[in-house]
Design a protein around this nucleic acid. Structure first.
Lengths: 344, 344
DNA sequence: GGTTAGACTCAAAGCGCTTTCAAATTGATT
DNA sequence: AATCAATTTGAAAGCGCTTTGAGTCTAACC
C-alpha cells in the first residue's frame, strides 16, 4: 500500500492539517517542523493522492489535448507527437498532467462537454482549427479555459491562440521563388477548409498578385498532407506540357512525395525544378545539416507546443488576464532544393 | 456550474444512493425510477465527477503512457502518434482516460513511482524497451499492472507484452533478398541497445548464416532512426568500391534517406539497388497504392496499440489472469523497390 | 390478520485531501 | 503578574461520489 496523509501525520505525531500545510509551503508552520515533515515524506516516498487533492481544491492539475483523427482513414498527423512533446515538458515542470483524447471528429463536441462535466481537466488545447471552427464558441460557452494551436480566421478573434504566420511565410517563399525567375509556381497544400491552408494560399496569391503573375488553378492542389498527395499532385502537374518550374508545399512529408515525382520524371530537384516546403522541424526528419536538403519556411512545432502550454497555464493561474495571442514568425531557410528558373 | 449528484437527486426527489445505483445499473432499483433518473441525467447533462468517483471506488479509470524522449536531441518517434491513436480508441470505448507523460529518459523511474503513489492511473504501457530494461523489474516491484510494447529479451519473460516478430520478419526479408541473388546486403538499423533492433539484426544474421553468406560489418549501421541516418549510412556504403546491392532498413523514414542517397549516386532504386524496409503503416506515409513503393515487412503500429490497450484492460479487470503475450507477425509485402541483383 | 419475503429506498460513513475556525503556546510588553 | 500579539498547531467540515447496513412498503402466504 502507498502511504497517505493520515498515516504520515500519525507517524510524525502531528495533525493532518500541519503536515498538509508543511508540504504545501504555507507560512504558518515553523521551519523545524517543516523540515521534519519534508524528511518523513521523502523517506516514505509520500505523494499526495491526485484525485483527493483535486476534489479538495477544485483543480484537476491537468490539461486536455483532444486530437481528432480526420477522415475515414483516421489519419494521425505526426506533428502532434512533437507538439505534445513540447507541451508535455512544460506541464511536468509545473506539476500538471497531460490528458489525451484521440477520437473521431464527429465525437468532439460530446468529448468537450464530458471533460467539462467530469472535471478532469483545468484547460484544453485545440488542434488543427478549421476556417470557422465550432469548437471555439462551444468551449467559450462551457467556460473552459482553452487555447487554439492555430487560428480560426472566420471566428471573432476573442480567444487565445498560438499560431505561425502562415500567410507571411508563404508570401515570402513565393516572392523568393519569383525573385529566382520562376513564374509557374505550383502550390501543394493541405485541405482548404483548414485554416492554415487557407492562410498559406492567401500568402501565395498575394505574392503572385503583387508581381502581376496570374494564378493558375491547374497547378494548385489541396488534400490530406500525405506523401502520396505530394507524389500524385506533382506527377500530374509535371506531366503537363506547361509544367511548373517550382513547387511550394505545405509539409516535409508532402515534399518527400514531390521529390519522388520529380526524380521519377527524370528531373533534378534544385536544378530543373525548385521546391520550397514548410518545415515543422519534426525530430525524425532532422534538417541538422549545414545546408539543408529543402529550402523551407521553418517553424518548430515543438516550440509552439511549449509556448502554447505556458500561455494556457498562465491563463489558468491568472483568470481575467488578457487572452494570450502569439504569432510566431517562420524563418525562410535556404537549402539545396531551389535554384534560378531554367531558361525556357 | 455543472450539476452534481446531490443536486440531481434533489431534483428527482430521490436520495443520492438511489440515483447512483440507477446510473450504475445496479439491480435494486425499479425499472421505472431508473428510467426517470436516466432521463433527468440526460436532460441536465450530468456526468459523475471523475475524481470523486475515483476516490470512492479506488479506481482511476485511466491508463498511463510514458514516452521518453531519447538522446540529447529529444527525439519524438512519430510511431507513438499512431500507437496512441490505436490505444486511445480502445480506452474511450471502455470509459478509460489516457494520461501521457513525455519526459527525458533519466526521469523515468521517478515518474513511475509518482504515478503509482499519486494514484492517477490503473495501469501503464511501456514503450521502446531496451535489451534489459530496468523499468520492468521496477514496475513489478511497484505492483502496477503494465504491458510492454515490444519485449526486453534479457529480462525474465514474466510480464505482459505485445510485439512484432522482428526476428522472423527480418529473416524472411533477408532470405527474400538472397533469393533475388543479392549477397552484399546492408543493414541500416536503429540503436543496438533497443530490443527490436537486436532482434532484427539476429534475423538478418541468421538468414545470412543459413545460406553461408558471411556478414560484413562495413555494411551494417545503427543509430537513431532518422532520415539523415538513412542517407548518411547509404551514402557512405554506396561510395565504397564493394558497395552493397541491397539495403534492409528498419523504418520508412530511414528508407526515405536511403532512397535519397541512392538517387544522388545516380542509381535507381528497384533496379540497381534493392531496398526492403520495415513499415509501421503510419498514416501519413500511406502505402495505399496497388503496388507500394517500398518492399516492406509490414505491421501496423496502430493495430498494435489497439491490441495492447485491450490486453492491458483485460489484465486490470481480471486480476490474476495469465499475463497476455502477443507476437504479431509482419507481412512481407512486395513493392517496387526490389529487383534481382544486377550481374556484377 | 399476522407474518414474511421481496422490492425499493435512504441515511450515513468513508475515500484522501484542503481549509476554516478555534485553541494552545510562546515571548514580549505593560 | 497580567495582558496581548504573534506564532504554531489541531478538530472538523467539506469536495462528489460509492456502498454498507438499515429501514419502509407492498404483495403473498398460511
Amino acid at each position: 500500500m502507498t502511504m497517505n496523509l493520515k498515516q504520515l501525520a500519525e507517524n510524525l505525531g502531528l495533525s493532518q492539517t500541519t503536515v498538509s500545510r508543511a508540504l504545501n509551503g504555507y507560512p504558518e508552520v515553523s521551519e523545524s517542523t517543516r523540515m521534519r515533515v519534508m524528511q518523513a515524506a521523502e523517506q516514505f516516498n509520500y505523494r499526495p493522492n491526485t484525485k483527493a487533492k483535486g476534489l479538495a481544491t477544485g483543480r484537476a492539475m491537468a490539461i486536455g489535448h483532444v486530437i481528432a483523427t480526420s477522415g475515414q482513414n483516421e489519419l494521425v498527423n505526426p506533428v502532434f507527437a512533437d507538439f505534445l512533446a513540447g507541451a508535455g515538458e512544460t506541464y511536468s515542470r509545473n506539476g500538471y498532467d497531460l490528458f489525451l483524447s484521440i477520437i473521431a471528429d464527429e465525437e468532439e463536441a460530446r468529448v468537450y462537454r464530458d471533460l467539462k462535466a467530469k472535471g478532469t481537466i483545468d484547460g484544453i488545447i485545440i488542434h488543427a482549427p478549421r476556417m470557422n471552427d465550432l469548437r471555439i464558441p462551444l468551449l467559450q460557452q462551457l467556460e473552459m479555459p482553452f487555447l487554439v494551436h492555430g487560428r480560426s480566421s472566420r471566428e471573432a478573434n476573442n480567444y487565445a491562440w498560438v499560431d505561425v504566420n502562415n500567410r507571411q511565410a508563404f508570401e515570402r517563399a513565393t516572392e523568393f521563388l519569383l525573385d529566382l525567375g520562376h513564374r509557374d509556381i505550383a502550390l501543394v497544400n493541405g485541405h482548404e477548409y483548414m485554416d492554415f491552408a487557407q492562410q498559406r494560399r492567401t500568402g501565395y496569391l498575394n505574392a503572385l498578385k503583387s508581381r502581376g503573375v496570374s494564378p493558375n488553378g491547374d497547378i494548385m492542389a489541396s488534400d490530406e498532407m500525405t506523401e502520396a498527395h505530394g507524389y500524385n499532385s506533382a506527377k500530374r502537374m509535371l506531366s503537363d506540357k506547361n509544367r511548373p518550374t517550382a513547387f511550394l508545399v505545405s509539409s516535409m512529408i508532402i515534399a518527400f512525395g514531390v521529390r519522388r515525382a520529380i526524380q521519377e520524371a527524370g528531373l533534378t530537384m534544385g536544378r530543373d525544378i525548385s521546391v520550397v516546403t514548410h518545415d515543422d522541424v519534426l525530430s525524425y526528419f532532422g534538417t541538422k545539416d549545414d545546408v539543408p536538403v529543402f529550402t523551407a519556411t521553418r517553424s518548430s512545432v515543438k516550440e509552439a507546443g511549449r509556448i502554447s502550454a505556458e500561455s494556457l497555464l498562465d491563463m489558468i493561474n491568472t483568470p481575467g488576464m488578457e487572452l494570450p495571442q502569439r504569432l510566431l514568425e517562420a524563418q525562410l531557410v535556404i537549402g539545396r532544393s531551389t535554384a534560378p528558373a531554367p531558361a525556357s
